[in-house]
Amino acid sequence: MPLPPTWQQFLDEAGGLSRFTGRFFSQGFKPRYEITELLRQCYIIGYKSLPLVGLTGFIMGLVLTMQLRPSLISYGAESQLPAMVGIAVVREIGPVITALIFAGKIGSSIGAELGSMKVTEQIDAMEVSGTNPFKYLVVTRVMAATLMLPVLVILSDAISLYGSYLGINIKGVISMDLYFKQVFDALSFDDFVPAFIKTYFFGFAVGMVGCFKGFNSSKGTEGVGRSANSAVVVSSVLIFILDLLAVQITDILGLN
């Protein structure tokens, strides 16, 4: 049964990505461990993304609050604003928006970096000098993305909530104490833990797709641009798919 070319391409991609992921698990946890490079990648991927993620998080919290405010006032439930923003940010908006920003920044940069290394034979050069480029380039980046995104999400959540606090204080008055008390009263472990766990998967997906696209970049500078671009597109879509899976799993586990 012949498949339409787009389908074949899609399946080819999916298969390639799966094999690449399998290779990550088969090689990633064996020595030698590239600790120095891992730390360097953590610094680049995590620390250097903080300003962007923090800024978007702050604006998101502020805007969300200002958008929700009128409708909550019409219900006479203005006092529920911290609780509502808190739950929205911690459960969904924080992880997903941060992951999308992360995919845009890190996914594309990994895709472009590895892509250009591939087409200029730098990856070959690494292999030739007796360094496993998969471990040195891919494993470190995927690990760094997996470990750093959750940290970024937590910081972004905190900044978002602070933005929301300022947002409430633009038109109303609430003390910092009361605000955070209301936020934390509204939150439970069931809100926090699944949202936190899924960020690891988001980070893993972004790192994995970025590396896959870069590592398998086709020759020429055009190939580099394409890998950067499709790294962002594919990882963004994957984030939403994982989010859908996460909500269903938490639902099945009765954690909602």
Binding site: E113, S116, M117, T120, E121, Q122, D124, A125, M126, E127, V128, S129, G130, T131, N132
Partner: peptide, 24 residues
């Protein structure tokens, strides 16, 4: 094996036609 190959490669110098210097 991959490991032995890496070991052997340290005894071989390879100059790429495209240089392949690490840009970063």
């Amino acid at each position: 094996s991959i490991h032995e190959m890496d070991e052997l490669r340290t005894k071989i110098g390879f100059l790429f036609q495209s240089n392949a210097l690490y840009d970063s």
